[in-house]
Design a protein around this nucleic acid. Sequence first.
DNA 1: CCAGATTTCTTTAGGGTTCAAGTAATTGGC
DNA 2: GCCAATTACTTGAACCCTAAAGAAATCTGG
Lengths: 164, 164
Amino acid sequence: MILDSETKATELPDDHRDEIRLWLRLLTCTTLIEGEVRSRLRERFDVTLPRFDLMAQLDKVPDGMTLSDVSKRMMVSNGNVTGLVERLVESGHIDRRTSDADRRVQVIRLTKAGRAEFRKMAAEHELWIADIFGELTPKDVRELMRLLAKTKGSAQKSAKARTA
Amino acid sequence: MILDSETKATELPDDHRDEIRLWLRLLTCTTLIEGEVRSRLRERFDVTLPRFDLMAQLDKVPDGMTLSDVSKRMMVSNGNVTGLVERLVESGHIDRRTSDADRRVQVIRLTKAGRAEFRKMAAEHELWIADIFGELTPKDVRELMRLLAKTKGSAQKSAKARTA
DNA sequence: CCAGATTTCTTTAGGGTTCAAGTAATTGGC
DNA sequence: GCCAATTACTTGAACCCTAAAGAAATCTGG
């Protein structure tokens, strides 16, 4: 069987070149899109992507959330959130107060101005994303969603196995 | 026709929620995997991801490449490369010299030690990636490759249209 | 030849990011 | 009630990253 001998010849014992290529392509795609969104946010609103992301988290919860929640949701370190929040409080986009129930906890919320500003940015952001993914059909989108969900599951399992 | 009225009811004039969700999922996947790789590189070899990436670029070209080439390949700014290279020269992993033909140009190469070190890391890295994507079938991998290629094309077109 | 444009790289200022260590508040077992 | 463990956050050191401005070398059109 020709295919078999060819397979043996090109991909020796354990070859994972395809997975490596997939990872590089995934990374390239994300970097490309992330850079594009970053540029547009800067150009159009003079805001950074992390600030926008943090505000997006807060926009979903009227009563605010704790720094730890933000840290988990954004998948970044606690120390990172501390600095981000500091700058957003400074610029008047968010509002921070110490929890009454637990004085270790800081609860942050969008200010009125912050929310208005975010909504404006989010509306344009949605159009950019639609344009960036514009050549994908609805079927492509569904299929990508499915495969990425599977990928996420696989990665989480692998990460869990390492940490355990 | 039921589908039509349903469509009208749920997705008003221009709804791009699916694309937004796709983008967030893509970002989550990449962040997750990138964090995992970053942790393992640090744990196992005490090296950062950007350093590993730069060395990976250099491993492909025996005669070295210019800083601009690296910058384009890695999709990062020139100034960033300057700093990265400085630290890698310092640690003895790479070697830099000024081009004879054009004295503006710096050519960098892996040193013997740097190449050996990289090959060791790359071998393990390949296994990590294989594990992280382990639950995907070969068909999943092919399909993802195809859809991500399409996504990349779409994003590049959008970016080009904006810059133009 | 030579002045202006371009290219390559570096520098600077301002963020963003992690990890590790530290502080303060709370919880839980005894 | 008290002390140890845990939790929430902050701080500090080191690195990564960008955009913008600048320096040096090269190229180009006259």
